[in-house]
Design a protein around this nucleic acid. Structure first.
Length: 872
RNA sequence: AGGCGCGUAGCUCAGUUGGUUAGAGCGCUACUUUGACAUGGUAGAGGUCGACGGUUCAAGUCCGUCCGCGCCUACCA
């Protein structure tokens, strides 16, 4: 057996262990179809990024669940992969081209895509290496990428199908346009932020009159595209203004005054300018009233040829100049400060410009109804449940999804337009010609939103299109684990698409994790500079410590503040485990016969009972995704029971050097601890398992203890509690009286109860060891000798004869304090027990417990008082 | 504007369907280098559970109001 180093040094074995697992082929689910199966697909990280703490959290939880299921005997599949991140990746490569003094437009679409693929080949692997570093037990043989041929084919299949069904359409609508990314965005990709702005009140002269109306706007530059002024029909001024014509300042265009109920009479002047081509609201009004739609900006945020003298100017520059011109013309009434929500591009933070544009959309309503139903009727369970409501709200108010992006990197829309007959062809395979026979067909230039392909992920990755064996075996997946921030982006859309195309839910459960924050609870962001990198934590504390810290803080429904101090603590925990194993190895004979039998000691039976109990608790917690509870249970058990009590109890026996059945129990119980902890701390547990005698090839495929405890076990556990209480009390007496920890004492215990005395006699050696006593006497009652420290635990009285009291007053105070505590409790209990309502209405069990408790505490107080009198 | 969540020890958080004496980790104090581990051991201090009111025999837990903090959604120009 290898000797272990004195301290835990994770860097020395993590890589090696991962390779060991991978080489063993244990990440792939066994072929055996009779096994219960478990499957989970990764929320694909995008290839341009690096994995942050949020990923570390999510993938840690994925791995914990997967390893747990695998050890529970499931054919467990965790399918890994990445997504192509349309805008992000395109931007990265464009930057690269820029530094080479060229551009995507210069090199053309085909060359550009080659460059992106090159980039993907070169850097895409970083992510998966990092994912491996987390200890992720993904099946790499099934790794997928959203732009793989197979997945791309699925995207096309789905698109064509939705198109033919009329659920995908193309049309000219207002969309969110990012002038910097130069593409349309979906509503979700727009972050609206409260922004301090101005509200400009502008006079619009009435035609053929000296009179005018005043409108209020936050974006004066859009007025160049105004095609009406609107008023609420109930407004007193409406009858007067009805059918009036207004002369639009600067442009001189004559535009009508219209009545529409959308106008908020309380806001601004109660009159609103209508710019159908640059405001979603106005767009609706415009369509209702048949207004002209005049676009006054181009795709880069500059004013266009419809903007008259302002053509070519940046939209914000134009705003300034237009305000000036209005002022000069005495048309500016006033400028108020005004805070309002302004849309920003999620990717680049540029202010989004709502723009009229021809885009592709998914008609979501029919899909949303089915998707909502799946959660309502319980086919999908969302955990924590609170998110269900938010999911319903979104589904109820869903709007059509703009899926076209003016990018080159992504799934190109499989639609062709004929130059000759104008026919639109939508096919899975590239058509050679139009139906009219013309070969002058052009494919749509745009690509699809990356989330479109992500929405298909659970079934596209498993081979839905070809109805593969994997698909039949592993779909629907068991659970989806991800952050609550992408519930709409991704979770909702996967449910819509999964139901639509497979007829089944994509997953049966959704576990939404919290967000990882910094130590002060702030959201981590690069701009704030408060990010913590997983790589840094792993090298400093070890991967297992990071994983454990994340798991033990993973309470469903709450965010996770990250404290480096905690990482340190869990590194110490790993060290504790390391040294406990080191201790066991040091005490193991060369060739231990694991078949040894014999009578089990108290400590043996106790640790076995507790292991059964703990395993049952851990399994129960895991099945409810209570990672924190499972981790916390194990933390406490290993450190404060296995090490503090069990190992301490068996130490004296081990020095005898003779292997007995107890040695076997020691080894087996340590192995159980390693198994229980393995999903949480896979590296260190595997490393240690390999150092111990073992029969299964690796811990990763060892059987997870199912747990359970019988009545005899419960009995032992209760007895141990008594022993612990006596020991703790003695230690406290020693400590409070400054008895040198090295000094051996004579311990006297007394009880009126035969059973207690018998038990104490049986535990004679254990008690001496743990209290550092050189002798133990058990009797019926105290002899009453002077010069003793006294204590009470239940029915057991404790005395420690000492002749050299350091401070007799201190001892009196100590007992005095205990009496006070008892008094307080007696008062409380008396109050309850003298209350008739309590006696009548509370359950009998509760009353009986209170009565028993009262008897116990009163007895305790009396004993303490006796002790105090004797001391005096 | 609407919706949601949070407020428990110095810090970060647990606390099941209301029921003994409200827990943990870190930090703190004292003692302790005993042959697994000082990344250790033993003991201890520390909380009127944000405030007020209500329901109940019984409230950290359920209800209401208020205060403080955070988040999400939304087309008030």
């Amino acid at each position: 057996m290898d000797q272990l180093s004195r301290t835990y040094e994770p860097q020395e074995f993590e890589k090696r262990i991962y390779q060991f697992w991978e080489a063993g082929g244990w990440f792939a689910p066994p072929e055996d179809e009779s096994l219960a199966r478990f499957s989970i697909v990764i929320p694909p990280p995008n290839i341009t990024g690096s994995l942050h703490m949020g990923h570390a959290l999510q993938y840690t939880l994925h791995d914990i669940v997967t390893r747990w299921k695998r050890m529970r005997g499931h054919a467990a599949l965790w399918l890994p992969g990445t997504d192509h991140a349309g805008i992000g990746t395109q931007m990265v490569v464009e930057r690269q081209l820029h530094s080479e003094k060229t551009s995507r437009k210069e090199i053309g679409r085909e060359k550009f895509l080659e460059r992106v693929w090159q980039w993907k080949e070169q850097y895409g692997g970083r992510i998966t290496q990092q994912l491996r570093g987390f200890g992720s037990s993904c099946d790499w043989s099934r790794e997928r990428f959203t732009m793989d041929p197979g997945l791309s084919r699925t995207v096309r299949t789905v698109f064509v199908s939705l198109f033919k069904e009329g659920l995908i359409y193309r049309g000219e609508y207002i969309v969110n346009w990012c002038p910097r990314c130069q593409t349309a965005l979906s509503d979700l990709e727009v972050i609206s932020r409260e922004t301090a702005g101005k509200l400009y009140h502008v006079k619009y002269p009435l035609k053929g009159s000296r009179d005018y109306v005043v409108v209020a706007t936050t974006r004066p530059e859009t007025m160049l595209g105004d095609t009406a002024v609107a008023i609420h029909p109930d407004d007193d001024r409406a009858s007067r203004l009805k059918d009036s014509v207004v002369v639009l300042p600067i442009m001189g265009r004559e535009i009508p005054v219209i009545e529409d109920e959308f106008v908020d009479r309380e806001f601004g002047t109660g009159l609103v300018k209508v710019t159908p081509a640059h405001d979603p609201n106005d767009f609706e009004v415009g369509r209702r009233h048949g207004l002209a739609e005049i676009t006054v900006m181009d795709g880069t945020g500059k004013m266009n040829e419809n903007a008259g003298a302002y053509a070519g100017k940046d939209r914000f520059q134009a705003r300034k100049e237009i305000v000036q011109e209005l002022r000069k013309k005495k048309l500016l009434v006033k400028i108020d400060d005004h805070t309002h929500a302004v849309g920003h591009c999620q990717r680049c933070d540029t202010i989004v410009e709502p723009t009229l544009s021809k885009q592709w959309f998914v008609r979501t309503k029919p899909l949303a109804d089915a998707a909502k139903a799946a959660v309502v009727d319980g086919r999908i369970r969302i955990i924590p449940e609170i998110w269900s409501k938010i999911y319903y709200d979104w589904m109820d108010n869903i709007r059509d999804w703009c899926i076209s992006r003016q990018l080159w990197w992504g799934h190109r829309i499989p639609v062709w337009y004929c130059d000759d007959c104008g026919e639109v062809t939508c096919e899975v395979t590239d058509p050679p010609a139009c139906r009219c026979g013309s070969t002058r067909i052009r494919q749509d230039d745009d690509v699809l939103d990356t989330w479109f392909s992500s929405a298909l992920w659970p079934f596209s990755t498993l081979g839905w299109r070809e109805q593969s064996r994997d698909f039949r075996r592993f779909y629907p997946t068991d659970v989806l684990i991800t952050g609550y921030d992408i519930i709409f982006f991704w979770v909702a859309r996967m449910i819509m698409m999964g139901l639509k195309f497979t007829g089944e839910v994509p997953f049966r459960e959704v576990f939404l994790t919290g967000l990882v924050r910094d130590a002060s609870g702030q959201k981590m962001s690069k701009s704030k500079g408060n990010t913590i990198e997983p790589d840094q934590l792993m090298s400093e504390y070890g991967t297992d410590a990071m994983r454990f810290a994340l798991a033990i803080q993973s309470v469903p429904g709450t965010d996770i503040p990250l404290h480096p101090g905690r990482m340190k603590g869990y590194r110490a925990f790993a060290n504790k485990l390391w040294n406990a194993t080191r201790f066991v190895i040091m005490n193991l004979p060369e060739d231990l016969d694991e078949e040894l039998t014999g009578e089990l000691t108290f400590a043996d039976r106790w640790i076995e009972a507790r292991l059964g109990q703990v395993a049952a608790q851990v399994n129960a917690a895991m099945s409810l995704y209570k990672f924190y509870e499972a981790a916390d249970t194990l933390y406490h058990f290993l450190w404060h029971e296995f090490c503090d009590w069990y190992i301490e109890l068996i130490k004296p026996r081990l020095t005898s050097g003779q292997a007995t059945v107890s040695t076997v129990v020691l080894l087996k119980s340590l192995r159980s601890v390693l198994k229980l902890l393995h999903p949480f701390m896979p590296y260190v547990t595997e490393e240690l398992y390999q150092k111990l005698p073992h029969c299964e090839p690796a811990l990763i495929v060892a059987a997870y203890p199912p747990g359970g405890v019988d009545q005899a076990g419960e009995q032992i556990i209760a007895e141990m509690k008594t022993l612990q209480a006596v020991v703790t009390s003695v230690r406290n007496m020693r400590s409070e009286n400054s008895i040198d920890p090295a000094r051996k004492i004579d311990l006297i215990l007394a009880s009126q109860l035969d059973a207690s005395r018998a038990f104490l006699e049986q535990r004679h050696d254990d008690l001496c060891t743990l209290t550092r006593s050189k002798s133990l006497t058990v009797g019926r009652a105290h002899a009453g000798e002077k010069g003793c420290l006294r204590g009470v635990v239940g029915d057991i009285e404790i005395s420690i004869p000492i002749t050299d009291f350091a401070d007799i007053e201190a001892e009196k105070n100590r007992i005095q304090k205990e009496i006070q505590k008892a008094e307080q409790e007696i008062t409380n209990l008396n109050r309850r027990l003298s209350n008739h309502d309590f006696l009548e209405k509370a359950p009998e069990k509760v009353v009986r417990e209170a009565e028993q408790r009262q008897k116990d505490v009163v007895a305790r107080r009396e004993k303490l008082e006796t002790l105090l009198r004797r001391l005096a």
